[in-house]
Amino acid sequence: MLEIILFSLLNGILYGLLLFMLSSGLTLIFSMMGVLNFAHASFYMLGAYFAYTLGMHTGFWPALILAPILVGVVGSLVERFGLRRVHANGHVAELLFTFGLAYVIDELVQLTWGTVAVPYREPDYLREPLFTLFGTDYSIFRGVVILISILMFIALWYLLKKTRVGMMIRAALTHGAMVGHLGHNVPRLFMLVFGFGCALAGLAGVIGGPLLATEPGMAATLGPIVFVVVVVGGMGSLPGAFYASLLIGLLQTFFVAIDASVADILGIFGLQIDPYGEVARITLANLAPMTPFILLVLMLIFRPRGLMGELEP
């Protein structure tokens, strides 16, 4: 039991950190530019595939740095030559643009790398156990992922709080036009933030690819969950996105680990629901993929502004 709790906790945090790497970029882009980027998870997928291909030439570690940069460049170009023109026609046009872009990227990935998973894996020595508890190994790679995530958060915090560009970004979050009136190139700032957000998604892909799977469905699997994180955390709130990422990461991991059925749990409270046997025998593990969306629905009904958001979606 303790083993399950401990490993679920570790894996839940790991998954949550990965979610935050995606949702932080999405949140920054949304609160600054008002663009809900439907293609965000596609940049995550690109990160994994770029790292896979680059890794064959440069090895794992250089690819870990180069792939996110490359994804960031692709993102900047998308903003500069696509989104910026579409922006003139309002938010609906932008939404549709990113929606279409997600499909384009998905198709391009399938054309380039095929429709089945590619063997993108961490080097063998990273698969050695970092530590062993109750006979279960925790791999070095998972430790590395947690370390990279934490380093990334420190870097993000430093960028936003301590640098001049970060000051401009924080100012533009609430008063974009005024930043321009002071003589700062806001369109360029938008391009940088969009590129940076995409690079973060790319980094999540680089480390998420070996953990989950590098396959053409990976964007479609994680994309909706990232949106749930942003809504549950509160649209436009970075701290909200952080807490929601961890919450959903932990919830999903714990649900997977719990083999009890709905009937078992009701049984604890002395309730018998035999007539509905089929439904009652669904285990929490079966419900795990649904938990983020149940949370989304409940959140929208009972607290539409999310955990820490100021605006309603």
């Binding site: 001049r164 000051m167 401009m168 924080r170 100012a171 979050l173 609430t174 008063h175 005024m178 930043v179 002071l182 700062h184």
Partner: peptide, 13 residues
């Protein structure tokens, strides 16, 4: 004014 930045940071921007 940029409400989340300090007075000094507002001036610096």
């Amino acid at each position: 004014i940029f409400p989340t930045l300090t007075v000094r940071q507002n001036l610096e921007l």
